[in-house]
Write a protein that binds this DNA or RNA. Structure first.
Lengths: 257, 257
DNA sequence: GAAAGCGGAGTTGCATGCAACTCCGCTTTC
DNA sequence: GAAAGCGGAGTTGCATGCAACTCCGCTTTC
């Protein structure tokens, strides 16, 4: 039933594929299918209640997304991520958001163009203002933060750039809100949001003034707060495991982060 | 038979899908399937000699590649590109190659690491040295140029970044050698290569010295020679139509380039 | 003569059949 | 007792069947 609700995002066409894709994603991120493990299509038919055709289509899509990878002799294997992979994923997103921010600034958007972003920043200011934040505040932050990043992409005015950022954000932990929740329980959690919000404010300012290079640098640096959060999370493996997708991390190699 | 040879890149597994993907790509880039046109799966079964299953898989892959896009009521439609789309595609690639160049520089590669790139630059120097260049020289340039960009990605040492660049380069005209051939017949064609080669040399220098920011800026600017070539090509629609994929361009909207 | 509505060819999305292949455990051989 | 080799369960990749749906042209109605 839950799967049915989720799949309703594509009503009608591609229904079964959407269900399979979402179901597989959940199984993988929950660690139900461990990294390195071959994804058996018949087994997924049983678990997901759709036939092999949509399962295969969904696997193909997840491969592009990066969650699975073609196996040596056919089929697909759950991908394992090193710490360096996660860090690189964040860096790629930050770089592309930098490009989006620069394009947005260079387009010299009108006040009307900027109104949604400006309102979003104002809302975020209000959310982080109280000296201590509730769970609900963190939720609100996550929602507004997602909106900020969507607006940034929209202001860049490029479908091609939007697609590239979407793909970059699809990788586990690479999205703009991946680690926010991790800090909800932490005493210094609010400070992290305060810093990030200051960057939102500066970014809006740079775009408003048409300062492309500054906007680009700010957006890239903004993504690097996620880098720092990743580093903190890696120091506390237990907490990371609690997050969806945490089990995909193979700490053996590449401690570059 | 030609299709068979091409598909041999994936020997054994995924043979039919590879064939279908390559065949579809050729049909689309040749303008055989015009932009906006729905891609009929049964028709492709006839033309490509594989059944609907691999055709559908191939369409799914081409959708991620950006050549086709899901139709409003099922199926896939050949995508149309505006001039702005092409320019943005090049900019995305350049931005990501900038990231790769910076990472390469920051890794402080050893002389051994850099040897292939250094040799490639030396070869390129020799290719562009003569006062006039033959067709064969342009071919050699294209080959070496492709190698240079591959080496750059390799030196960055990141599979995640490599994937992102690969996807960005897959878009029509976004690849590093997309426009080189366009200038083979032009009197000033050699000068374009001379300028680009100077950038290769500077990029190698920056990476060698560990100058990350400089390497990043150089790589991004290097991609912008493709932007200029695109602009020139757009001024001469006939020549553009001659290139594979030229017919995908819809000049109506977005003359941003 | 124009517009509405019907019908059928064509298409998609999913399910399933089938041969070739992979891979693992057991048996057999030395 | 160890290693090699065999056999079968399980799997993949492709082909095809089938119902639901879309879309276009024609007929029919007013």
């Amino acid at each position: 039933m839950t799967a049915r609700t989720v799949a309703a995002e594509e009503d009608g066409r591609g229904m079964q594929v959407g269900r399979a894709q979402q179901g597989l994603r959940e199984l993988i991120l929950a660690g139900d299918l461990p990294p390195g493990k071959r994804v058996s299509e018949p087994a997924m038919v049983d678990r997901l209640g759709v036939s092999r055709t949509p399962v295969r289509l969904a696997l193909e899509r997840l491969a592009r997304e990066g969650l699975v990878t073609p196996g040596a002799s056919g089929g697909f294997v759950v991908r394992a991520f090193t710490a360096a992979d996660l860090a690189d994923g964040i860096e790629v997103r930050g770089t592309l958001e930098g490009l989006a921010a620069r394009l947005a600034a260079e387009r010299r958007p009108t006040a009307a163009d900027l109104a949604p972003l400006r309102a979003c920043v104002a809302d975020l200011d209000r959310v982080v203002a109280p000296p201590t934040l509730s769970e609900a505040d963190f939720d609100a932050y996550v929602r507004l933060n997602a909106f900020f990043h969507e607006e940034l992409v929209r202001l860049a005015g490029s479908g091609v750039v939007a697609r590239a950022i979407e793909q970059a954000s699809a990788q586990p932990f690479a999205g703009p809100s991946a680690f926010v929740r991790l800090h909800a329980t932490e005493p210094a959690g609010r400070d992290t949001l305060v810093v990030a919000q200051e960057q939102h404010r500066l970014l809006l300012d740079a775009i408003t003034r048409g300062q492309g290079a500054r906007a680009e640098a700010l957006a890239a640096e903004h993504a690097r707060v996620a880098q720092r959060r990743l580093g903190a999370a890696l120091a506390d493996r237990d907490r990371l495991d609690g997050l969806p997708g945490g089990s995909l991390l193979r700490l053996a190699a590449g401690k570059r982060a």
